[in-house]
Deep mutational scan, measured.
Amino acid sequence: MRVFPVYAPKLIVKHARIFLTGVIWVKDLGRLEFEKGRFLLPRKSLPKVKQAILELNELIEAQN
């Protein structure tokens, strides 16, 4: 598990694309899981977490 002390979308996306499957922890967002290079949306999450995951997945799609 990698810990990101700040929310840096480009760096987080780079990590997810390299490792494809895993878990990261982002300060103020908490634990985020990714599989096959995409972030998974938890069943229950705060609106800011949901927005961050959608933003990260959009960045991943834009890079493909």
Rank of each mutant, 00 (worst) to 15 (best):
L54R: 13
H15S: 03
L32I: 14
V6L: 06
P9W: 02
V6M: 07
T21L: 05
N57L: 03
K27Q: 12
L40A: 04
K44I: 05
P42D: 05
E33W: 15
N57F: 04
L41G: 05
Q63W: 12
I12M: 05
E33T: 15
R2A: 14
E61C: 10
G37W: 02
L32S: 03
A62E: 13
H15I: 04
R43K: 08
L40N: 08
P47M: 10
H15K: 01
W25M: 11
L20Q: 10
R43V: 09
G30T: 02
A52Y: 02
F19R: 08
V23R: 14
L20W: 10
K36W: 11
N64A: 10
F34Y: 06
F34M: 06
R43N: 08
G22E: 02
E55R: 05
P47L: 13
L20R: 08
R17H: 10
R38L: 12
E33H: 13
I60T: 05
Q51G: 10
F4M: 03
L56Y: 00
K48D: 05
R31H: 04
Q63T: 11
H15Y: 05
L32P: 02
P47F: 10
Y7D: 01
Q51V: 08
K48M: 08
Y7I: 02
K36R: 09
P5G: 08
V49F: 06
R31E: 15
G30Q: 01
L41Q: 13
N57M: 03
M1Q: 15
L56W: 01
N64H: 09
A8C: 14
G37T: 07
E61R: 04
I12E: 01
E35C: 13
H15V: 07
L32M: 14
I18L: 07
V49S: 04
L54W: 09
K36L: 09
I24H: 00
V23F: 04
L46G: 12
P42V: 07
A52E: 01
K50W: 10
H15M: 04
I53Y: 04
R2N: 14
P42K: 14
R43C: 09
L56N: 02
F4K: 01
I24G: 00
V26A: 02
E61H: 07
E58G: 06
E33D: 15
V6H: 06
L59D: 04
V26S: 01
K10A: 13
E61P: 03
G30D: 03
P42S: 08
K48C: 11
W25Y: 15
L41C: 12
I24V: 05
Q63Y: 08
F19E: 15
E35G: 06
I53H: 00
K14L: 12
D28I: 05
E35F: 10
A16P: 01
M1C: 15
